[in-house]
Structure formats: structure tokens, C-alpha cells
Design a binder for these strands. Structure first.
Lengths: 223, 223
DNA sequence: ATGGGACTAGATAGATTGTTCTAGTTATTT
DNA sequence: AAATAACTAGAACAATCTATCTAGTCCCAT
């Protein structure tokens, strides 16, 4: 009835490391099994397919992401922006250890699989939402209602995109400096930004935020 | 003597699309051949291995990146920041067409391959340098020597990381809005930023920029 | 016109992949 | 003690992968 071994957990952990290090397709089932010190019999006892293993990896990550920025984790840090970047510092450590417990830089995998594996695409979308919401709620806390929600959401998206891109570069070149450079700059920009919130709202001469949003999008397409 | 067919070019083009859409390992040689309307005989006539094909894709991209932000391309746009984002708008269109001619979102591939394929890692590093230099020189143009070079380089890194992350998300979820949201916000942040250059330099209380840089890095590690 | 280099064609090899299968062990329940 | 369920073991299979091989066609220079 109750589970009697930690093999399932070992497989998930091994997979999350290998998927991140080598990508979904390159990380073979055999390699995962070997790293987890299991056998294919055990593997297919717990997971019907390799795809289901990736889904389990994603599911476990969501919980960890939610906890990453929680006040209990960084009790001493009051300022929400600083708590955000403190959490990203934890991420940095994971990166250094070659782990990917938070599944944050997995857009790469998703791009690899979204066409053919709709369940994984959905799972990834869910992870993305969790990330953006976590960041956004920290930004809201720091904004004290001064900035509108729409702006905060796009900023959360930007922050996550930047973190993901920086993590990928760091992984690709085995060099955490690349991650640090981008994040230090990001920190500066995010910190210096609330002051000109008013300015940024209408920097294109428009006044109503949603319309300005529309126009800005238009600009992209026009070139 | 001189080449007599465009097969090589067709193979490079097909590969750049498939590598981007499916990743290096998933994009099989056969699929590339089929898409390029070639045969394996032709393939291995031009490229000793699949890896060499990817290297050719990277090599071609470098030239295109350099041209992307050139003044001739956007003759009417004088402001360098606007020229930067105009170039990124071109990128956006390529994304919409499923192409990856500029090899910009290929950190994903690199992460997939850097361990086992050192030549590709080096090729990717070169593409990264080209990108960062291109962005940095635009930023320098716009800064009129007011901001120090170090800051501009980290900012260029951040911009590229954000663009890459946003592109990956857009590809993963087949939704360009994700790209737009991040880039609109990035535009706002980069635009609003030169004013507080002085502030951002020493925002942690340090004065000498390199030292401040060191300390900021320290902060990451401390958590 | 002919020799030679550039290129094409596609069958095939050899390795690797995800998955299945049968037979087993271990622990818990009755 | 026997039965049942949870789990393990690893050989084997079918599909797919990259790369090779031989035999060709096409075009240009001599």
C-alpha cells in the first residue's frame, strides 16, 4: 500500500539534474536510471513514460518555487525587492551546484518539446505562471499600490525572462559570472525604477496605460 | 572548382529552423535532409558531421547579427537606443516566422551541448560576444561617454539575457505576447535609466565602481 | 570528346533510444 | 504460513539515430 522505497524520489532528482544539464532528448532513460542507481524495471513501475517523469519533475518544482521567496525563508529581509534578489541568490547557488530544482531555466526544454508533447507544454506554462506570480506579488508589495497591476506584471515577466536567459548563458559557458553580471544590472534597474514610474507610463506621449501598451506593441510589428 | 548548387545553403537554412524548433538532438539528420530537399549523400559531402552543420549555422549568424543594428538598415533612426529596439523588432518578426537566423536564442542548444561538444561551445561563445558587443556599442553611442564602460557591458549582457529568455518563452508557448511584454518593459527600463546613472553607480554606498561590483557579487554568494 | 572534380542518390551499417517482458525479491496483511 | 501487493532485475525488442558506402550524374577545362 504505502510506498516502501525512495526510488521514485531518486529518479526525479536524477532526472532534474540531467534534463537541465543535457536537455530532454540527450538525457537518456538509461543514464537517468544509472544516476539514480535504479533499473528500468523500477523506472517503468513508477512512470509510464519518460515524459511522465518530466511532468513529475515540474510538479515538484512548483512547490519549491512558491517557498523560495516566502518571508519565513528570509525573515530578516523586510524590503520585498531585496527579498526577491535574495531568493534569486539561492537560485544562483543551485546553478553552481549543477542542480535545477526550481525548474526555472526550463524554457529551453519547453521549446524543445512544446510541439510534440502538449502535456509538457501545459506543465511548463503552469511553472511559468507560478514564477511570474511570485515575482509580481513581491513587486506589488514594494510598490504600495502606486503602480498599476499591468505594469507590474510585465515587469515580472521581464525579470523572469532575464533570469532565465542569464542562467542559460551561465550553464552554457560554465561561468557564473555571466549570471552575476546580468543580475547585478537587473538589480540596479529595478531598484532605480519606481521613481520614474510616472514617466515610464506615458513615455511615448500616450496617457491611458492600456492604449499605450497597444501602441508600443504596434511599434514592434512595424519594423 | 566553384560550387555549383545551393544545397549547402539549403541545408544550413533548414538546420537553423529545425535546431531552433526542436533542439539539436531531436532535429535528426534525416529530417534536416528532407526539409532541405537533399539526400544524405549531399549532406555528408558538405559537412563531415552533424556538429559541423551547426557550426556553419553559427558562423553564418554572426554576419547577420553584425548587420542587424547597422545604421544603413535603419537609416531614419538616429537615436541609438531606438535603433537597438528596432533591430530587436526585426528579430521578433523572425521569431514569428519560426526562423532563427540570428542564432540568438541558442543558449538553449549550447546548454544542451557544451559538455560534450567543445567546438560548439566555442562557436556559441563567439556568437554571444558578437551580440554583446553590438548592443554595447549602441549603448555607448547613446551614453556620450557619460557612463563607464563596465556598466555598459553589464547592461548589454542583461539586455541580451532578457531578449533570449523572452524569445524562449515565446517559442515554448507559441505566443509572441510573452516576448512583447518583456521587451516593452525592457524598453521602458533602458530608456528611463541614463538619468540615474550616477545613482546606480553607488547605490550600495560604495564609490569606486569596480569595488562596488565586487561587493554586489559578494551579496549573491552570501545568501 | 574526354577526364576529373563537384555533387547526388539511396541502401545499409552499427550504435543508441524508449519501452516491454518475464522472473524474481521483499515486506506487509490476513 | 500463505497470499498479496510493492518493488527490483536485466535481457530483449523495435524504432530511430548518425554516418558510411558504392554507384552514379552533371558540368567544366583541357
Amino acid at each position: 500500500m504505502a510506498e516502501r522505497s525512495n526510488t521514485r524520489e531518486r529518479l526525479i532528482r536524477a532526472a532534474s539534474e540531467l534534463f537541465w544539464a543535457e536537455g530532454y532528448n540527450r538525457a537518456g532513460v538509461n543514464a537517468i536510471i544509472r544516476r539514480a542507481e535504479a533499473t528500468s524495471g523500477s523506472f517503468y513501475h513508477f512512470f509510464p513514460t519518460k515524459e511522465d517523469l518530466l511532468l513529475a519533475v515540474l510538479a515538484r518544482a512548483e512547490g519549491r518555487i512558491k517557498r523560495l521567496f516566502s518571508p519565513t525563508e528570509f525573515g530578516k529581509i523586510i524590503d520585498p525587492t531585496e527579498r526577491l534578489f535574495a531568493g534569486l541568490g539561492v537560485l544562483r547557488q543551485e546553478l553552481g551546484r549543477g542542480a535545477a530544482e526550481f525548474c526555472f531555466p526550463m524554457a529551453a526544454l519547453s521549446a524543445e518539446l512544446s510541439d510534440t508533447h502538449p502535456r509538457i507544454r501545459d506543465g511548463m506554462a503552469s511553472v511559468l505562471r507560478v514564477w511570474v506570480r511570485a515575482i509580481q506579488s513581491l513587486l506589488e508589495e514594494g510598490a504600495n499600490g502606486i503602480r498599476n497591476e499591468r505594469d507590474l506584471k510585465t515587469e515580472a515577466h521581464l525579470i523572469f525572462a532575464a533570469v532565465e536567459g542569464a542562467a542559460l548563458q551561465a550553464q552554457a559557458f560554465q561561468n557564473l559570472d555571466l549570471f552575476d553580471e546580468s543580475l547585478i544590472r537587473l538589480h540596479v534597474l529595478v531598484r532605480s525604477q519606481p521613481d520614474d514610474a510616472e514617466f515610464s507610463e506615458g513615455f511615448k506621449g500616450e496617457f491611458e496605460p492600456p492604449v499605450q501598451q497597444e501602441n508600443a506593441t504596434q511599434d514592434w510589428r512595424s519594423w
